[in-house]
């Protein structure tokens, strides 16, 4: 059985060596998970589950992509599963919350900026703020305050550059919802940065 596996592996572009997985990929996969799901225990579980489900399908590993790409794809699907679960549970609650956000930021009658949330020039518009660590720290806190569905959508778009249509399918949201979420997320983040930086 073992030699059989090795022989087929030799004809493939990339080989697969489960004995080395932990040493070679565990840290990388953990980093991948934790930047997308801010929860250490959950990230550890996901790394373990990724290896275990990879083992189950190891004979289907076709060697067309590298082991690390293959393992990352498995992990990514598990992360999307979690996003999806969160999204379905919280949808109702969030739709209530988001109504309030809208009237908070813009006047209901004319769509003008509300006094409190009107963007001010405070340094965020200059490229050199990209190097400012403190501001990134604030951004991180502002991201954590977002409703989880919004954060999932935002992360998939901006971290992984996923196609908008794919995000809609994976999280089971409509195209219109997708744009509303992207819009509200940005309005919130910007406002949160302004409030905490000034």
């Amino acid at each position: 059985m073992e030699t059989d596996k090795n022989r087929t592996a030799a004809t493939k572009l990339y080989s697969c060596n489960p004995q080395q997985w932990v040493a070679q990929y565990a840290d990388y996969l953990y980093g991948y998970a934790i930047t997308r799901i801010d929860d250490e225990d959950l990230a550890k579980d996901l790394v373990q589950e990724t290896f275990l489900s990879a083992l189950e399908k190891v004979d289907r590993f076709e060697g067309r992509s590298s082991e690390s790409t293959w393992l990352t794809a498995i992990l990514k699907n598990k992360i999307i599963d979690i996003y999806r679960k969160k999204a379905s549970g919280l949808r109702q609650l969030e739709s209530d919350v988001s109504l309030k956000y809208d009237t908070d930021f813009f006047n209901e009658e004319d769509g003008h900026w509300n006094e409190n949330h009107r963007p001010q020039v405070f340094g965020l518009e200059d490229y050199d703020v990209l190097g400012k660590k403190e501001l990134r720290g604030i951004l991180k806190l502002c991201l954590q305050k977002l409703p989880s569905l919004w954060l999932s959508v935002f992360t998939m778009k901006h971290m992984d550059d996923e196609a908008s249509a794919a995000i809609c399918t994976e999280l089971n949201i409509t195209d219109a919802n997708f744009w509303v979420i992207m819009h509200r997320t940005k309005i919130n983040l910007r406002s949160c940065l302004q409030k905490n930086w000034l």
């Binding site: 930047t35 963007p119 965020l124 518009e125 200059d126 490229y127 703020v129 990209l130 501001l135 990134r136 951004l139 991180k140 991201l143 935002f154 901006h158 971290m159 940005k186 983040l189 910007r190 940065l193």
Partner: peptide, 15 residues
């Protein structure tokens, strides 16, 4: 618009 663009880039750096 300028701030929104910078936020997108900051988010990438953060990740």
């Amino acid at each position: 618009e300028r701030q929104s663009l910078i936020i997108n880039q900051m988010v990438k750096v953060l990740f």
